[in-house]
Computed example of a mutant assay.
Amino acid sequence: MSRIRIAIVEDDPDWLRGLTSYLGKEADFELVGQASSGQTGVELLERVEADVVLMDIMMSDSPDGIWAAAEIVQCTGAKVIMLTSMEDKELIFEAFKVGAVDYMVKTNFAEIPQAIRNAYANRSPIHPSVAEKMREEFRRLKHLEHEVRVKELRDLLTPTEVQVLDLIEKGHTQTQIADKFVVSIRTIKVHVGNILRKLGGKSSKEAAQKAKDMGIL
């Protein structure tokens, strides 16, 4: 039976010793090397071949593991599993962005062997607690993307155009709006034309509804 070659990058000597001892009891595992920093981890993987790398994220008080994981994924065929004591949404997101196949909190110690086997077999389900953190981060990014889009559209509109949209949304006709601003109906039509060009839509009412739905009004 071929064994899964494992490298460990971890700066906590007690955790490293415990993890090494724990994984050493698995008959299908072979520990091929260990390192205590991101840089030495990358150098280790230049010398030895590993199927799976267990990578601590926080080393020397910085997320050194993210950089190291990116280098290892890019330069080797190893699968990287991030191990950490932190459930930080941004770090989880960054870990998967650089190519990690799984992200496990160290308190889920007993689940590490199966996570290694899953990674080796290209079937790495994301741990439920991590999946929820990722969903939260995706929701945050989606909300941020929406806010940026709203700001871009709002910046395109002049204050007068926003006022015109607001009145249209409230049911005013273009004639009523012209009377309110004491301008000609032609001037209001020019404003409406500019609004449609900037926001899109087939009618002023459609543009006003879009502006309301997006939170511009």
Rank of each mutant, 00 (worst) to 15 (best):
D61M: 07
C75N: 15
V42G: 03
G41H: 06
A100W: 02
R117V: 08
S36M: 10
G77V: 04
C75Y: 00
E132C: 09
S85T: 12
L54P: 07
A78R: 02
T84C: 02
Q39Y: 02
V130D: 02
L31W: 03
V53T: 02
K97G: 05
H127C: 07
E111F: 05
K133I: 07
K106Y: 04
M58Q: 13
G41V: 08
W67M: 01
K79T: 03
E132Y: 13
N108W: 06
E137H: 07
P125L: 12
L83C: 11
A119Y: 03
E87Y: 06
A100S: 15
D61Y: 09
A68W: 06
E30A: 12
Q114V: 10
K79I: 08
E94L: 14
P113D: 14
E94M: 11
K106P: 08
S60C: 00
L54R: 10
L31V: 08
S60Q: 08
V48T: 14
S37V: 08
A27I: 05
S36K: 12
S62C: 10
V98W: 02
P63D: 13
D64W: 01
P113G: 12
L83T: 13
S60H: 08
E26T: 15
K79V: 13
A100F: 09
E46S: 15
F138C: 00
T107Q: 14
V98P: 07
V48C: 10
K133S: 14
F96Y: 13
I112L: 04
I57Y: 04
D51V: 03
D51E: 09
E49P: 00
S37G: 02
E90R: 14
E136G: 12
L45I: 10
S62Y: 07
A121R: 10
V80E: 07
M104F: 04
Y103L: 04
V130F: 01
N122V: 02
G65F: 08
E71H: 07
L45M: 15
E111G: 06
A131K: 09
E49D: 13
A100H: 04
M58T: 12
G65A: 10
E94N: 13
Y103S: 10
N122E: 14
Y120N: 10
A68H: 04
S85A: 15
F96C: 03
D28L: 14
D51A: 09
D88T: 08
N118D: 15
A119R: 01
V98I: 08
Q74H: 05
E46I: 01
E49C: 00
M82S: 15
R117K: 11
A35T: 07
Q39H: 00
I92L: 08
T40L: 02
Q114N: 13
Q74P: 00
N108V: 05
G24W: 01
V73T: 14
N122C: 09
I112C: 09
S129Y: 02
D28Q: 14
E46V: 00
D56V: 05
M82P: 05
L44T: 12
E137K: 11
Q34D: 04
S36H: 13
G41I: 04
I116T: 08
